[in-house]
Amino acid sequence: MEKKLFEYTNDETFEIYLLIKSADIRVAKNGKKFIAFTFQDKSGQMDGKYWDAPEGDIAAFTAGKVVKVSGKRELYQGNPQIKLFKISVIKSGDSDNPDLYVERAPLKKEDMMEEINDTLFEITNANMNRIVRYLLNQYQKSFFQHPAAKRFHHAFTGGLAFHTVSMLRIAKTLADQYEEINKPLLYSGVILHDLGKIVELSGAIATEYTLEGNLLGHIVIVDEEITKACMALKIDEKNEDVLLLKHMVLAHHGQLEYGSPVRPKLREAEILFMIDNLDATITMLNSTLSRTEPGLFTERIFGLDNRSFYKPNESEKANEN
C-alpha cells in the first residue's frame, strides 16, 4: 500500500500523487517567479516551493489539480515541508479525482445532520428557532460539505458541520452543568456563528477566500443573512431575540483584534467565544499530535502562536490499555 504524505519521515524521499491545495505565484529576491505550493492528501497538508518556475509550469500546476510529486520531506523552522525534486502532470489512466486526496470529517454527513436537527427541538425560542431553521434549510447542502477554515482547523470536507456538532456537544455539557445558561440562545449561536464561511470560502478542494470573504468576512455575512431571514419570516429585526442572536455572531471571536466588531456582552456570547476557541485549539493539537512520534515535539502550530507541543511516551502506553 502506498504511503501517505505524513507517513514519510524527515529526510526520506518519495514519489507520490498529491492534490495541489493552493499554488501562489510569488517573486524571489532575484526577481524570478516561484510557486509556493500547499500539497495535500488524506494525511494532511504540506508546503513546498518550486523555484524559478517557467511560465508554462505556472499555468499548468494550478490549485485543484492532482500531480505526481518527487521530493524529500525536510524541516524548515520547525515545520515539515517538501523539498521539491520534480513535479509532473499525471499520466492517462491514473486517478486524477481530487476527492481521493481530500480529508473528510470523521462523522458521516447523515449523522451530523441528525444531531443538528435534534438540537433544533431544544431551541424553544420561537424567533430564534425560525431563523436558524430558515438559514439551515437555505444553505443545507453547502453547510455539510464546506470546510471551517482554509488551513488550520477543520480544514476538510464537512469540517464546518463537524466543528458545529463538536461545539454543540461542549455547549450541552456546559448547559447541564450551569442551569442558568440560556440554551436556545447558546445553541442558536453555535449553529449560526460560522455559517458565513459557506460564502467566505470557495469549498473543500483548493480552498480560497472568495471576493465576499476577503471584503466582508464571515461575521458580517452571517449578520446580513440573519437580517434577510427576518425579512423573509416577517420578524422585527429590532426584536430583542434577534439582537441577542446577532450579538452572539458578531462577538464570537471575542476580541476586536481577532475580527469581532464588538466584544461579548452576554454570558452566552462569552461562552460561545470560549467554546469556539477550545474546539479549534483541541482540533489543531489532535491533528498535529497524530503525526508526531511519542517522545518528540510536534511541528510548530501557527494557529497556537507558533508553539511546539510534546507528545509523551506514556500516551502510547495509555492507548494500549
Rank of each mutant, 00 (worst) to 15 (best):
H253Q: 14
D118M: 11
F14A: 06
G196A: 10
K83R: 14
L278F: 11
T13F: 03
M46D: 09
T124R: 07
Y310N: 15
R26A: 03
L174M: 13
V222Y: 12
A59H: 07
K21H: 15
L168R: 00
D94W: 11
G78I: 12
P106T: 00
F156M: 05
K150I: 13
D11A: 15
R263K: 13
Y101R: 04
N117F: 10
L256Q: 11
V165I: 04
D99C: 13
K32L: 12
K68T: 11
K238I: 04
S95D: 15
E200Q: 00
K42W: 03
I131N: 07
S88K: 15
F162L: 09
E103F: 00
Y258K: 05
F34M: 01
D236G: 08
I221Y: 07
S188P: 05
T173M: 01
V220P: 02
L256C: 06
G189N: 07
E74C: 08
K246F: 14
E179H: 06
R263Y: 02
F309S: 02
L289E: 11
I282V: 09
F121V: 05
M112F: 04
A60R: 09
E299P: 00
S260C: 12
R151S: 13
K150E: 13
K238A: 12
S287Q: 05
P261K: 05
V262I: 13
F273I: 00
P106V: 00
S70P: 08
K109L: 04
K68A: 07
V69G: 07
D47Q: 12
N79L: 07
D11L: 14
G159M: 07
F85S: 09
T288D: 10
F34K: 03
M112T: 09
E2K: 14
F309W: 01
E2D: 04
D52R: 13
E179N: 06
G56E: 03
Y187C: 08
D223G: 15
L18F: 06
F39N: 10
K228C: 03
K141H: 13
S95K: 13
V67K: 03
L75F: 15
A148R: 02
A204N: 04
L186N: 05
E200I: 01
L216P: 03
E114Y: 11
V102E: 06
A60M: 08
T227H: 14
L201E: 02
P147Y: 05
L136M: 07
T9F: 09
Y134S: 14
M112H: 03
L245W: 04
Q138G: 02
S166R: 08
Y50G: 02
Y258R: 10
L107M: 05
P184Y: 04
N182V: 03
Q145H: 06
T13I: 02
Y187N: 10
N125V: 13
K172N: 03
F39W: 14
A175V: 06
T62E: 15
M112G: 10
R291D: 04
Y139M: 05
L243I: 03
Q77D: 14
H163Q: 05
L185P: 05
L5N: 00
M128V: 10
A149C: 07
G78M: 15
P80K: 13
S95G: 09
P184R: 01
F297A: 10
K86F: 11
K317P: 04
T62K: 15
I35A: 14
V67D: 04
I20E: 02
I191Q: 07
D41M: 07
L278A: 09
A23Y: 00
L107Y: 04
L136W: 10
F302R: 05
F302W: 00
L278G: 03
